[in-house]
């Protein structure tokens, strides 16, 4: 299975996955509320600093990882001025007109803020996703997050199915092509294809799930209410320090933005 996980032994790697997840969640929710470009920009900068200083992610690697995210944001930046409701911005100067398409200065501001907000939301997930092994995350959820272990370990087993399913999809596609199945274009074609793929895929997946379940039961999975853990996940003082440190730095950042009048209005529903 391909994930973005980067193997390493940095401070960020050694933290409990839950502490990274908590910080990620808190900042994510805050950025959702922003409306001006400055706050998202500040949090993107903070994220990059955390990744480089605490995560020891090589700069070149970071640039490679960020490029597709920046591209997504750029698409928003280009499309948004055309999509924004005219009544919101028609009091601002008209910059450009081509037939019925009008671009106002106000819609550019909206576009920039939205694009940066999207970039920030995507970037904020990186410290967690780049430095957390998926198995460790589930271990932490079970050991510290009170997730029932039967649920957690079933999820982990399901992760193991992903490469098999990817492989199945490509083999079924090839098998159908060899039979001379020519895809009809458009929605009908897509529906047809979905229907044709679904039965063999589901049959295979259910069979695999049944077999895996038997193999797990055969090794006493779920036989006892408790289980022990070879790899004990810990939520240490360093984790507390990271969580409160990050929250404190973020609060300072927000205060500074507010102080210089760069914070803007905070609201969840932007269009109102």
């Amino acid at each position: 299975m391909r994930t973005v996980y980067l193997q390493g032994d940095s401070l960020l790697h050694r933290l409990n996955p839950l502490s990274k997840f908590l910080v990620n969640l808190a900042l994510f929710i805050f950025v959702l509320f922003t409306n001006d470009p400055w706050a998202p920009l500040a949090f993107i900068a903070l994220t990059v600093l955390v990744l480089v200083l605490l995560g020891r992610v090589p700069l070149l690697r970071l640039v490679k990882l960020m490029t597709p995210l920046v591209l997504i944001a750029t698409v928003f930046l280009l499309m948004y001025p055309l999509a924004v409701r005219q009544s919101l911005v028609d009091h601002t100067p008209l910059l450009w007109q081509w037939g019925p398409l009008r671009v106002y200065a106000g819609s550019l501001d909206h576009a920039l803020a939205t694009a940066l907000r999207i970039l920030a939301l995507l970037a904020l997930s990186l410290p967690f996703s780049l430095t957390t092994d998926s198995a460790d995350f589930i271990r932490a959820l079970v050991q510290q997050g009170r997730l029932p272990y039967r649920v957690g370990y079933s999820t982990l087993a399901a992760f193991g199915f992903i490469p098999m399913l990817q492989n199945e999809v490509s083999v079924i596609g090839a098998a159908h092509r060899v039979r001379g199945v020519n895809g009809t274009a458009g929605w009908r074609g897509a529906y047809e294809r979905l229907r044709r793929y679904a039965v063999p895929l589901l049959t295979g997946a259910i069979r695999q799930a049944e077999r895996t379940a038997l193999a797990m039961d055969g090794r006493a999975f779920g036989a006892l209410p408790q289980r022990t853990y070879f790899q004990r996940m810990r939520f240490t003082a360093v984790d507390w320090l990271f969580v409160f440190g990050m929250l404190a730095v973020s609060a300072l950042l927000v205060f500074a933005l507010y102080h210089f009048g760069l914070l803007g209005e905070l609201s969840l529903l932007k269009i109102l």
């Binding site: 299975m1 998926s134 198995a135 370990y153 982990l156 087993a157 992760f159 193991g160 098999m164 069979r207 695999q208 077999r211 895996t212 038997l214 193999a215 797990m216 055969g218 090794r219 006493a220 999975f221 779920g222 036989a223 006892l224 408790q226 289980r227 022990t228 853990y229 070879f230 790899q231 004990r232």
Partner: peptide
């Protein structure tokens, strides 16, 4: 029991996790 499908008897993602999986289920001392 060792089953026939090598792709359908793993509960975890790494070799070490896989081998301790059964021992953890039995509550063996880590």
């Amino acid at each position: 029991i060792l089953f026939q499908d090598p792709d359908a008897q793993f509960a975890t993602l790494t070799v070490e996790d896989e081998i301790v999986f059964g021992l953890e289920n039995l509550c063996l001392d880590p």
